[in-house]
Every structure is written in C-alpha cells, then in structure tokens.
Amino acid sequence: MSLQLDSNGRLHHLLTLDGLPKETLCRLLDRAGQIRDAALGRTHKRDSLVGTTICTLFFEPSTRTRSSFQIAAQRLGADVVNFDASTSSARKGETALDTMRNLEAMGVRGFVVRHPEDGAAEMLAEHTGEGTTVINAGDGRSAHPTQGLLDMLTVRQAKGPDFSRLKFLIVGDVKHSRVARSDLHALHTLGAGEVRVCGPDALLPGDGTLAGCEVGADFDAMLEGVDVVMMLRLQRERMEEGLVASLDDYHRDYGLTAARLRRAAPDAVVLHPGPINRGVEMTDEVADGPWSLVLRQVSNGVAVRMAVLETLLA
C-alpha cells in the first residue's frame, strides 16, 4: 500500500482500491463529480496538465478504458502517446519495463498500464523515476481501480452517498474478474450495507476474495430486494476450459431478464462493465431499459479518469 501513497499520504500511483483510505477514495469520487461537465465536453477544456505527456501502455486490447483515458488526458491539456504492444518492439522481445524506461527517458510522466499478468502495474511502479506515476488500467485478474471508482460514482449518483442502506448483488464470473475485485474493495471501504455474490461454483473464487459477502448459486433467490445489480461479462474462454456448459445454460441460470429483475427492489439499477454479451448476461430489454446505468458508467469513466490523472500529475 505504501507504494501508492507518499510519506505525506498523498496518492502517488493508483494500483488497487484494496486498502485505499476511505478519505482518498471519496476525494476522487467528489472530484470526478465536480468536473463531469468538463469530462463530457460541456465546458472548456482544463489546462491543468498542459506540458505533461501521458502514455497509454496497453499490452491487452481495450476500447472503453483506453479511449476514456485518452479523452480524459486531452481534456486536461495533456499530450497523449498510445502504445500498442501488437505494433511495437514488444513483438521483438522488449520487456514492459524496458518499454516504460525508454518512454520515461523521452519525458513521459504518466503511464496508464493494462497488462495480462497479475502485479504488472505494481512492478512497473516500483521502477519509476521521481515524478513519474503509474495508473493500473487492469492487470490480470487482480485489479481495475478506475472501473471500480466509476462504478461507485454511478451508484452514488443514482442512490446517494450512504451505501450502508443499500444491498448489492454481483453476478457472474467473479473468479476471473479484476472488475469484481475492485468493486468489492470499494464497496467494503464505503461501508456497503450488504454485498451478495452469485454465480456458478466454478466461477467463484475460493481465495478469501468473498470474505464478508453472502454467496449463493441461486440467482432468483439472491435478487430478492437488492438495490444494485452488478453484472459481469462472461469470458467465453471459460467455456473452452469447461467451466461453463453452454451460453444457453448460462443465460437460463444467470441471465438477467426484465421478469427476473422484478424480484429486486422496485427502484433497482443495473450496471455492467462492458462489453455486454447480449442474450447471455442480460437481455436487450434490460440493457436498454430504464434500470440500466451502463452508458452512465461509460460517461463517468472519463470524469473519474480525469480526476485520477489530475490528482496524480497536476
């Protein structure tokens, strides 16, 4: 945790929400809420990062996360370098660390890192020079802190800041989901009243991740009375591993339909980190219906990432 915070308790890197002080987490959410209009282009661009160069250092494909970080940086006045491992010297065997060091030598001061290996962002942060910061944009199955923040901001806008009165349900492939882990870390920090987790046994972790949660496999029963339903993407490679029998079976047991959603609280809301497998995790009626906050999550992603970049680099 000390790697994230400097000696004065100021955020230096953002690698995980696990153990992040509640005050720091809330400060980021407050800031994102304040600059949301600027994030959506409704006001003039800010100039807090003029003269700063930021690199999106991605070793995995991404649409929403990379684009929103790029938009966020540009709306703060920063210069952005987009690194794509598929067209870089990484294909020639250059390590992620050497890549970062070379870009750092060119004056890049902020690295937004996505990597398939657990702990990759932390490893890079350990080797940065003074004044350089690393933001984890998703590493392995460990963490996706800005997704966790934007999910919390979305819930906060819909339900208010007091999470202690809310019941949350996380559904699907929690075992392999870095989003689920960051959401769980944030929910525990913010004092969520009740956190339920539902999914097939093969897709639920057995490593202590779900400590403090109510866990069950009966989706209909777990939906009863919840205020927030957080659906997860079914990673289709899990079918190849034999962890899911078929898409039809998964949808039958864990797909969210409008009829099923009636078991939740009358004003329940639905989140999904995207991309949605329509007809698998949820029907079109739910994804596009009045319960869905999916597009609000996407727009909040720019605001959250602006808040993070400004906090770390301004």
Rank of each mutant, 00 (worst) to 15 (best):
R75A: 11
V113G: 00
R109L: 08
K92H: 04
F83P: 04
E104Y: 07
M152E: 10
M106Y: 15
G138K: 01
V179E: 05
S86I: 13
T133N: 10
R156G: 13
A137N: 03
S89N: 02
V113F: 00
T133K: 11
M152S: 12
Q74W: 15
E117F: 08
M106A: 15
A105M: 05
T95S: 12
D151P: 10
R156L: 13
A78W: 12
H144W: 06
R178F: 06
T154V: 06
T133A: 06
Q157R: 11
A73Q: 07
T146V: 08
K92C: 01
V134Y: 01
D79W: 04
G110L: 05
E104A: 15
H176G: 10
I135E: 01
A90G: 02
A96S: 15
M100N: 06
T146A: 02
H115S: 02
M106T: 15
D118G: 03
A90W: 14
N102R: 09
G172C: 09
T99I: 11
K159R: 14
G138L: 05
T132M: 06
H127V: 05
E130K: 15
D98N: 09
Q74I: 03
R91N: 03
R114G: 01
T146N: 00
D162M: 07
G77P: 03
H144T: 05
E126G: 14
V112Q: 01
R181E: 05
H144I: 11
L166R: 14
F168M: 09
G93C: 09
D98C: 04
T154G: 10
P161G: 06
D162P: 07
E130C: 14
R156D: 14
A96W: 10
R181W: 10
A125D: 13
A96N: 02
D162R: 13
V171H: 09
N82I: 15
D98H: 03
A72N: 11
N82G: 12
S142T: 08
A120H: 00
D139Q: 01
S177V: 00
A72T: 15
V112P: 01
P161M: 12
S182G: 03
S177R: 00
I170L: 14
L153V: 12
T87F: 01
G131P: 00
Q147F: 09
L150P: 00
R101E: 14
